[in-house]
Design a protein around this nucleic acid. Structure first.
Lengths: 360, 360
DNA sequence: CACACTTTTA
DNA sequence: TAAAAGTGTG
């Protein structure tokens, strides 16, 4: 039995708007910790991973793990019937019902709408997502990322993302024109991912990464988002824990493993703050944070220079998640799938895309 | 000779936008009392009835009854040439001219445009619309009605409208999902339409017809709009008078003849007044009215529970009239065509749609 | 010709 | 954030 109450139907609406064109059907995996969704896109090139944390709901209850197989197009239609600020309650797993019930309640309660969506069996190839220590992380306004990939997608099919001490450069070459956008660190570039994390303490990266610039690499691998922060403990950052047995997403065709990925970080966790943090965080944030908070700032953390090429078509698709967060993080390592992550109060949405090899 | 001057071309533009996709050609029946249009939709399932009252015009003159056969698509094109707040003058019946002249005058008179639309002969099957005492009436924001039918039309082809003491429930069942929207009475539910009607007294039909409100039929059946009120007394209410010979709109394929059924009410006839009443009425209105005025309120009046199923396609089409009024009234009785009515300062537009029978 | 989607304006 | 207009596609 699942019963989850979201204060704002808008969150779900935006999530579905963001992924409905990428994935046709997917399982919402409900556990007592929250709801996750993980799926390869229709052409099996990219991987989408969504997390809605249990504590992001106004009320949340899930007795037993439950996969809810849903056709995202149908769910999108049903969500369009909700007004953005309706209170939305999801119910499933009631005795024998093979439907997902969505209830929308107007704030003044004089309108109550209930929709029942048929569930389907989807064999989810649960993929483990290897926890990776990235060589570089770019944190920037999601609107800026959208703009860049949309602009460049008009010129060519793919974009080369190069991260160097100079900054991040997005380059696309097309038949009629070539384009290149260079973003420099708002403040000092290249701070290594030390503790930047948010306010918390920073342990992290090892020591110092001192952050700022140093990029020192070593140390700290740049884990997912928040992670970054925490690091303190080990550095491994891996968080990952989990990947073990299952397949991991390698990119490309992948499917490999599980993921856990996140482990440590629990990205979201903190994340929220960041995102949300905007408000609060700022206050505390130290410099690093600032970047995070800074609405328009670009933060570049780099342990090693990176030069990868990706299909713009997918990046443009990923950027539809901008409505969920004003900030996006790009995590890159050579020859490893790019991770594009949007953190919001109730969880996160992450996309993984394998780089193009050679000149494909 | 017809000469009618409308203060706002917008009214005509919106009217045509509302019906142009439902009806291809129609006669504007001009009499000294105003202009009416009545037509079955192209598939002969729904009936549209428009009234522009003589006193809704800034100037109005019509020497003799005159049907103006117009192609609505052409008229729409011509109306698009008018700015919303242009003063619009309609002229026809001048010696021998078989055209409808539309003049658009800018408020400051520094622009005067004139268009002549060719008229055509259309054999109008004038239908009598039986005056019905409805079992229930729902008054709600037109935007809410639009939203509900649009939402549900994404799921299925038809909607079941149930009116009970609980409120009004709109339900649609589709392949992928089912949806249900429940609206509760904003204030107290279920007030029976007694005289609430408007202020006036209610005499009713027959005599009363005379204008204004009195439509009340006595008894109270819920007559059209205003009418509703009346119920108390007798029930018969027929007003009808007029229909006599002509066919009546029965809904579906209808045409049976007159029917009587409705007896009591003579549909159309009275109709007009009620509608218009709004304006004036308000002043007088007692409490009931308030609801009418309430921007966001939902008022439900019910003498008997109603459970009917309709094609959403038509309801969605009807809801295009939302631009004419912020409020819509749904009048229902079991096994009788639904009446969807939008009242505005200069008149009204009403749609009749027969319920689906069985599981068609 | 109608429907749907996208963009722009309020 | 919502509503309206215009453009494009089927």
């Amino acid at each position: 039995m699942l019963e989850a109450k979201l204060e704002q139907a808008a969150i779900l609406k935006r999530l579905l708007d963001a992924i409905k064109e990428l994935v046709a059907d997917a399982n919402f995996e409900c556990t007592e910790e929250g709801i996750t969704l993980q799926a390869m896109d229709n052409s099996h090139v990219a991987l989408v991973s969504v997390l809605l944390k249990e504590d992001g709901f106004e009320e949340y209850r899930c007795d037993r793990p439950m996969p809810l197989g849903v056709n995202l197009t149908s769910l999108t239609k049903v969500l369009k019937c909700a007004k953005d600020d309706d209170v939305c309650t999801l119910k499933a797993g009631g005795d024998g019902a093979d439907t997902l019930s969505l209830t929308y309640e107007a704030r003044n309660s004089d309108r109550i709408a209930e929709y029942d969506l048929k569930l389907m069996d989807i064999d989810s190839d649960k993929l483990g997502i290897p926890e990776t220590d990235y060589d570089a992380r770019v944190t920037m306004p999601s609107s800026e990322f959208s703009r860049i990939v949309r602009d460049l997608s008009q010129l060519g099919e793919s974009v080369r993302i190069e991260i160097t001490k100079e900054g991040v450069r997005f380059t696309s070459e097309g038949e009629a024109a070539n384009g290149s956008v260079l973003l420099k660190q708002s403040e000092a570039i290249g701070r290594v991912p030390k503790k930047e994390a948010d306010e918390e303490e920073e342990e992290d990266e090892e020591k110092g990464d001192e952050d700022e610039d140093e990029d020192e690499d070593k140390p700290k691998k740049i884990k997912k988002e928040k992670k970054k922060v925490k690091k303190e403990d080990g550095d491994v950052e891996m968080n990952g824990d989990e990947e073990d047995g299952e397949d991991e997403y390698k990119g490309g065709s992948d499917d490999e493993g599980e993921e856990e990925q996140e482990e440590d970080e629990s990205p979201s966790k903190k994340r929220k703050r960041p995102s949300s943090s905007k408000g609060k965080k700022k206050a505390k944030r130290s410099k690093d944070d600032e970047a995070e908070e800074l609405p328009d700032g670009v933060r570049i953390e780099m342990n090693q220079a990176v030069n990868l090429t990706f299909s713009l078509k997918y990046l443009v698709n990923f950027s539809k998640s901008s409505s969920l967060s004003s900030i996006v993080q790009l995590m890159l390592s050579n020859d490893v799938p790019l991770l594009v992550s949007y953190e919001f109060g109730q969880g996160h949405i992450r996309y993984y895309l394998a780089p193009k090899i050679g000149d494909e």
